[in-house]
Computed example of a mutant assay.
Amino acid sequence: MSAKIKYTNEPFEAKVVRDFLPPPDQLAFREEGVKVTLALSKKSVDFFKAEAAKHNTQYQRMLRKLIDAYVETYAQEASATPQPAARKRAAG
């Protein structure tokens, strides 16, 4: 049998933690997907498959999140930076 727990009236500090979780409707949101065919190096695919197995997820999901994070980061920069004028191709 385990020993009984003795409770004491020791002072403790409680603090309110800001709610940082998104509401359920944001968790259920699903973006429209577009299927693409993409040839990747075997080394890259093997890496993502191994990492996905470690974290009990799908490697395609990891790749999708990686690309989305890249787009989110650089799309903001691209919209703030003026783009050079496009060059016209000479008729051949």
Score class of each variant (00 low, 15 high):
Met1Glu: 07
Met1Asn: 08
Ser2Trp: 01
Ala3Phe: 05
Lys6Leu: 02
Lys6Arg: 03
Tyr7Gln: 11
Tyr7Cys: 09
Tyr7Lys: 12
Thr8Phe: 03
Thr8Met: 00
Glu10Met: 06
Pro11Asn: 10
Pro11Leu: 10
Phe12Arg: 08
Ala14Tyr: 09
Ala14Met: 06
Ala14Ile: 04
Ala14His: 06
Lys15Val: 08
Lys15Thr: 10
Lys15Trp: 11
Val16Ala: 13
Val16Glu: 13
Val17Thr: 15
Val17Ser: 12
Val17His: 14
Arg18Tyr: 13
Asp19Leu: 13
Asp19His: 15
Asp19Tyr: 14
Asp19Phe: 11
Phe20Lys: 15
Leu21Tyr: 15
Pro22Ser: 12
Pro22Gly: 12
Pro23Gln: 14
Pro24Lys: 15
Pro24Phe: 13
Leu27Cys: 13
Ala28Cys: 12
Ala28Thr: 14
Phe29Pro: 02
Phe29Ala: 11
Arg30Asp: 11
Arg30Ile: 13
Glu31His: 14
Glu31Leu: 14
Glu32Val: 12
Gly33Ala: 13
Val34Asn: 09
Val34Cys: 09
Val34Tyr: 09
Lys35Met: 15
Lys35Glu: 14
Val36Gln: 15
Val36Lys: 15
Leu38Gly: 03
Leu38Gln: 06
Ala39Met: 13
Ala39Gly: 14
Ala39Arg: 15
Ala39Tyr: 10
Ala39Ser: 15
Ser41Met: 10
Ser41Trp: 04
Lys42Phe: 07
Lys42His: 11
Lys42Ser: 14
Lys43Cys: 04
Lys43Pro: 00
Val45Ser: 11
Val45Thr: 15
Asp46Glu: 10
Phe47Arg: 12
Phe48Asp: 05
Ala50Trp: 01
Ala50Ser: 08
Ala50Phe: 05
Ala50Val: 08
Glu51Gln: 07
Glu51Val: 11
Ala52His: 06
Ala52Ile: 10
Lys54Ile: 04
His55Ser: 08
Asn56Lys: 11
Thr57Pro: 02
Thr57Tyr: 04
Thr57Phe: 03
Gln58Leu: 06
Gln60Arg: 06
Arg61Met: 09
Arg61Gly: 09
Met62Gly: 03
Met62Asp: 05
Leu63Met: 13
Leu63Asp: 08
Leu63Asn: 07
Arg64Phe: 07
Arg64Gly: 07
Lys65Asn: 12
Leu66Glu: 10
Ile67Val: 06
Ile67Tyr: 01
Ile67Lys: 02
Asp68Ile: 07
Tyr70Ser: 05
Val71Asn: 07
Val71Asp: 05
Val71Gln: 08
Val71Thr: 06
Glu72Leu: 05
Glu72Val: 02
Thr73Cys: 00
Thr73His: 02
Thr73Lys: 03
Tyr74Pro: 00
Tyr74Lys: 01
Ala75His: 00
Ala75Val: 00
Glu77Phe: 00
Glu77Thr: 00
Ala78Val: 00
Ala78Trp: 00
Ser79Thr: 00
Ala80Gln: 07
Ala80Asn: 05
Thr81Tyr: 01
Pro82Gly: 02
Pro82Met: 01
Pro82Tyr: 01
Gln83Arg: 07
Gln83Ala: 08
Gln83Phe: 01
Ala85Asn: 08
Ala86His: 01
Ala86Tyr: 02
Ala86Lys: 03
Arg87Cys: 04
Arg87Asp: 08
Arg87Ser: 08
Lys88Asn: 04
Arg89Val: 01
Arg89His: 04
Arg89Gly: 00
Ala90Phe: 13
Ala91Glu: 11
Ala91Cys: 04
